[in-house]
């Protein structure tokens, strides 16, 4: 069954790690987010699905402060980050793997990872490097290869690994499965689950690949035209006829 969206729906207990309230974001005079409310609790995997142009990436970027929300508020661990500059938000240990990977193409894999570690204690560098290369063994073989010459799947792994190098508390992933072969998609989602379960990183995931993403998620939101229209447990949304019809073409894929 589907729950109609109700902002008071919360995991009873402590306050959310990330709390988005009534956020409206504009591109010039175009309103891309029309009042979004959303919570992410520590330790969760939260997924957001929605059609192309719904505003999912915009929400990700707004959480990171670029473009900043025009009205509404975003709190992270109780701190208001609505109008904080992006680089300061990143210092609070929110890491993002932005849409389209955006790795540094002329730099080597190792240098890309080093850029990700910019905010972490340099003493952790070797440990963190071992950690991310154990998550993605393919990267270990290619540490000195230029980022731009990696395959699409490897670039996605690098983008996630780079975001992890800062030891984030909250990891924002924008369409990690974009353009990847089903097998690689499966691998990436397994790693996401591992990061969350074993290492306790909270994850907010935006996906087109609704089936995998909803199966993985503790909770999920559906966004349509800049507003949240549905929310609930991942498994619940996966069963809901509306979601199945709109995002799963009536079946799994």
């Amino acid at each position: 069954m589907t729950l109609p969206y109700d902002p008071s729906w919360e995991n009873a207990g402590d306050a959310p790690m990330l709390c988005v309230r009534g956020v409206r974001t504009y591109y010039g005079s175009i309103m891309a987010l029309r009042g979004v409310d959303l919570d992410v609790y520590a330790g969760e995997i939260v997924t957001m699905i929605g059609a192309n142009g719904a505003g999912k990436s915009t929400l990700m970027m707004t959480i990171c402060g670029d473009p900043a929300a025009r009205t509404g508020s975003i709190h992270f661990e109780g701190r208001d980050i609505t109008r904080m500059p992006t680089h300061d938000i990143a210092r609070l240990k929110i890491a993002q793997s932005p849409e389209g990977r955006r790795i540094f193409p002329r730099m080597t894999v190792l240098e890309n990872l080093q850029m990700g570690a910019g905010l972490a204690d340099p003493r952790h560098f070797d440990d963190d490097l071992n950690y991310v290369t154990s998550l993605f063994p393919r990267l270990r073989e290619r540490l000195h290869q230029r980022g731009g010459t990696l395959s699409g799947g490897e670039q996605q792994m690098l983008a996630i690994a780079r975001a992890l190098m800062s030891r984030p508390k909250l990891l924002l992933l924008d369409e990690p499965s974009l353009g990847l072969a089903p097998l690689i998609v499966k691998q990436i989602f397994e790693v996401i689950a591992e990061i969350n379960q074993r290492d306790g990183v909270t994850i907010f995931l935006v996906e087109q690949n609704a089936y995998h993403a909803l199966r993985l998620a503790h909770r999920a939101y559906v966004m349509v035209n800049g507003v949240i229209t549905m929310s609930g447990a991942g498994a619940e949304l996966l069963r809901s006829p509306e979601v199945r019809e709109a995002y799963l073409e009536g079946g799994r894929h």
């Binding site: 990171c64 670029d66 500059p85 992006t86 680089h87 990143a90 210092r91 890491a95 993002q96 932005p98 955006r102 790795i103 540094f104 193409p105 002329r106 730099m107 240098e111 080093q114 850029m115 990700g116 910019g118 905010l119 780079r162 975001a163 800062s166």
Partner: peptide, 22 residues
């Protein structure tokens, strides 16, 4: 770090910002 940030900036400004580079 500053020199690496220069090069990263040349490659991708948005990625730089999301990695906490001013």
């Amino acid at each position: 770090p500053i020199g690496r940030a220069w090069e990263a900036l040349r490659e991708d400004e948005i990625a730089c910002r999301s990695l906490g580079i001013d």
